[in-house]
Structures are given as structure tokens and as C-alpha cells.
Amino acid sequence: MPPLTPENTYPTIVFVTHGGPLEAKSALLAASLAEHYLPAKMLTRLMEPFDVFDKISEETAQLFDELGVEQRFGKNEISIEYKHGNKITSMRGVTGPTIFLDSDMLLMCPFSWHHTFNADASAKPADLDTFRHGGGSWTEVWKLFGRKVPPKTYVASLSGEKIRPYFNAGFIYARDGDALSEAWLDASRRIDAAPKVINKRPWLDQIALPVAFSLLDWQPRELDVSFNFPNHLAGMEHGLPYFAHYHWPRIVAANPSLMHRTRSLITKYPLLKPILGKYDEWDEVLSKLDERE
């Protein structure tokens, strides 16, 4: 594991992109990062094969170039049918501090990156234990790896229930992205192949994440909700989070703070408007913005 040095102190932020509606979300995320993540170390994985994951548009490629987003190709090494698997190897080859972000997020304010340090890894507990509630067994998961079932030392961010290590995989900090990527892939494949573990999809990535931390002998740090705020489930009455996890454009359209952020980003980066305009799901957002002009 490389030591922290002045050359690798700032995390590289990684997110996934491919043609289709995801590219609009990725473009909006990239613009928000470019404005408020001053180290500006950004990498996007362009998913292959292109007969499954379409190429991004020329406008999005141009925007990434203008914003300084490095573009590397990536593949889903779990299953093409399991789209959440795109993220699992997205940090491969990124040594040193790394942050993975889901593409359906917005950085809302200047990001104090240092809050994620002093730990091997950091993530926000899941909103609720979707795996267990759907019939999944943590005992069967940990038995696969010859390890004791961890105690319920975390609190789900929405339900408030005590849970075992189980994190929302929308924001993940790792002290070494490449190391986490390989451990995460190993854990995911073994869990996915285990017939006694049910209710695996779409939660496989989140089920395997705490196992990956354990395989690396990493102790994850619990992040508060401001690093991965569930806008599809809650409002932002108590101030802006760092990262708003909005999931769908209709959530942006319904939230004044998200609309204001989107408007300011389109003003600063005009290429965003035609990129969002390619996809019908952004029509409500763009119509509301046009009304204000």
C-alpha cells in the first residue's frame, strides 16, 4: 500500500459513463466536480463493449476534455445484465487515495476532501438494510469467507435501525483504489456464485463491499449523510450536503436547491444543455429552467 505523500494526497474521483441517459448524469456530475473540487483529479470509466454500452456523444467527450476529466475504458466483470457491476472495477489501476461516486450525484458546495482521511476506507451506512429485509442472510455471506458475522455497530441513515457493516456504494473513499477494486471484485464473484445467498441483486455491490474491506484488513470509517445525501428519500431543509444523490431528474425538478445548482452549471458550462436535452427524462428540468430565462 503506497504511503501518503504530497504527490498523492488528493484523491482521484472516479465515476462511470456510457452512452444513453447515464451520460447526461455523468456530464452534470463532472461539471459540479470541476467547479467545486479544486484538486480537479477526475477520471471516468467509459464502459465497453459498445454494442452493449453505447459510446458517449461528441458533446460529452468535448465537455470532459474541457473539464480535465481523464477518460479510460472499462468493462463489467460481473455480468453485463448486472449494471451495478460497472462500478466494481472502476477504480482499477488508480493507486493511492481514490473516491468512487455514482454518476447520479451532484457536488453542491466546495468539497473538504480531508474529512475522508485518517481511515483505510470511508462510506455512509445504507439508508436501510435492503439485503436483510429482502430475505438475505449476513450469516451465509460471512460464512463464505470463513469469518465471524460482524456485530450491528452501524446505524442506517434513514430507518435508524442498527445494522451490520452495510454501506451505500454511491460514495466510497479508499486509501488505494486499485487494491479495493480487486478485493471488491473477488468478494462480489464469490457471493454471486453462492446459491445459499439470496436477494443478491441489485444489492450485490453493497453486500460485497464490507467483505472487501475485511479481506484487505481495512477498518472503514463511517461518513455522515452529507457525503451521500438521499434526495430521493429526503429533503435538504437543514442545509446543503456535499454530495446530493438525486437518482432521477424528476427529483432535481422538484428540489429548488438542485434546480439552482443545475442552472448555475449550465450557465457556466453551456455544453451541458444540449447534452441533457438528448434525453426526455430531463425535459421537465430544462422546461423549468427555460421558464426562468
Rank of each mutant, 00 (worst) to 15 (best):
D120Y: 06
I251R: 11
F227P: 05
E59Q: 14
A123G: 04
K200S: 07
S26W: 07
V211K: 14
E293G: 14
L265M: 07
K83E: 13
G160L: 10
L107W: 06
P165L: 08
E81M: 07
M42K: 00
Q62T: 14
R45H: 00
M259E: 03
H247F: 11
T262H: 09
F73H: 13
F229P: 02
A254F: 03
A253Y: 03
S103E: 05
E81N: 12
W184R: 04
G96H: 00
F100W: 13
K288I: 01
E48G: 15
R263M: 11
L216V: 10
S112P: 04
I88Q: 12
I13C: 05
G134Y: 02
F145A: 13
R72A: 06
T262R: 00
L233M: 12
T44L: 06
D283G: 03
P49V: 00
H84Q: 12
D224G: 13
F117Q: 13
I163A: 02
L28E: 09
G85A: 06
P3Y: 05
Q71H: 04
A61P: 05
A194W: 05
M1S: 13
N76C: 02
V211I: 15
L33D: 04
T9K: 06
L101G: 00
I251S: 02
W282C: 09
E48P: 01
F73K: 07
V197F: 07
L180Y: 00
G146W: 11
I78T: 09
E222G: 05
A194N: 10
I88M: 14
P97A: 08
I275D: 12
L63G: 09
T9N: 08
E35C: 08
L271T: 10
P220M: 10
S32E: 07
L106I: 15
S79H: 14
T89Q: 14
A31P: 09
L233F: 09
Y173L: 02
S159P: 03
I275K: 09
L107R: 08
I275N: 09
A156Y: 10
V225F: 08
E291K: 15
F50D: 08
S112C: 10
A34R: 14
G20F: 03
P97N: 11
A253Q: 05
H238V: 10
Y10L: 11
S79P: 13
V149R: 03
H247I: 15
T267W: 14
I198L: 12
P2T: 04
W142T: 04
D283V: 03
S90V: 01
P210L: 13
H247V: 15
N168I: 11
G93D: 00
H36I: 05
Q71M: 15
A169M: 04
D120H: 11
L107Y: 00
F15Q: 01
H232V: 06
W203I: 08
K143V: 01
Y242L: 09
L101Q: 08
D54H: 14
G160Y: 03
G93S: 00
K200E: 04
A193T: 07
S57G: 13
V52W: 01
K143D: 15
K25V: 04
A212F: 06
I198F: 10
P11N: 08
H115T: 10
A174G: 01
T9C: 10
A123Q: 08
V94C: 07
L265K: 02
L158R: 12
V252Q: 06
